[in-house]
């Protein structure tokens, strides 16, 4: 049987998607590790997250180069075109999530050996939900499933709610004891980074909605 004329192109599209999943997995691990390092005050791990961000950046470049080459060689149309455009957007979002992990790694270094302000509970919870949103947004991509993508959009409210809670709690601590201001601010930054990670996951979900349906899936603008 002769090879279908699309066999090569389809193969390359599948490979690209697999590369994006690899990048997604690198980013997810970086985010989890950055928060775990912060919680357990493991400076070595914080430093590793910062260093490993280069790998994420390289992977992004690699995927973008492949997308551009595919556009140049195949001149894609319709779903093929939307797919590659979505891949490019998703890659940028993932790379930026990696930057947030790096940012949390730097906060880990800044906090250094200072005594913990309080046991971290809500921030690791935010991290879990944000990472879960990331995983499911990529799951929606693989399955081309708008329902999963829409659920990711909804879940952003949970992360926003937790961020509100963390914010109020930290402001209260700062008002009560100005000596906590520096450490509280560091934690607020970390929480803010996680809030952004969740936002980027909703971007990916929106790209899936665009890819599958050809229409934009923007949510109402969230508070952050």
């Amino acid at each position: 049987m002769s090879r279908s004329p699309r066999a090569e192109f389809d193969g390359e599209l599948t490979n690209l998607q697999n590369e994006i999943l690899v990048l997604g997995s690198m980013v997810e691990k970086a985010i989890a590790k950055s928060i775990e390092a912060l919680r357990s005050r493991n400076i070595d791990h914080s430093r590793e997250v910062i260093e490993e961000d280069d790998l994420i950046d390289n992977k992004q470049d690699e995927i973008e180069d492949k997308c551009i080459a595919l556009i140049a060689r195949q001149q894609p149309m319709a779903t093929d075109l939307r797919q590659i455009v979505a891949f490019l957007h998703i890659t940028v979002d993932l790379e930026r999530m990696g930057d947030y992990a790096e940012g949390i790694g730097k906060i880990g270094l800044l906090m250094g050996e200072q005594p913990p302000l309080k046991p971290l509970i809500d921030i690791p919870r935010m991290c879990e939900i944000a990472n879960d949103m990331l995983r499911r947004s990529l799951d929606a991509l693989v399955k081309r499933d708008i329902a999963i993508a829409n659920q990711v959009l909804k879940d952003d409210d949970q992360v926003d709610g937790l961020y509100d809670q963390v914010y109020r709690e930290l402001v209260l601590l700062m008002v009560q004891d100005p000596k906590t201001i520096e450490r509280a601010t560091f934690l607020l930054w970390a929480a803010h980074d996680l809030e952004r990670v969740a936002d980027r996951a909703t971007n990916i979900a929106e790209q899936v909605i665009y890819l599958v349906g050809g229409t934009r899936g923007h949510t109402k603008s969230s508070r952050y």
Partner: peptide, 17 residues
């Protein structure tokens, strides 16, 4: 037509299927 055709036959044709 080229970014988001409504008919799957159009989609199949312009993507070379």
């Amino acid at each position: 037509i080229f970014q988001n055709p409504q008919d799957e036959r159009t989609e199949a044709y312009i993507t070379g299927r």
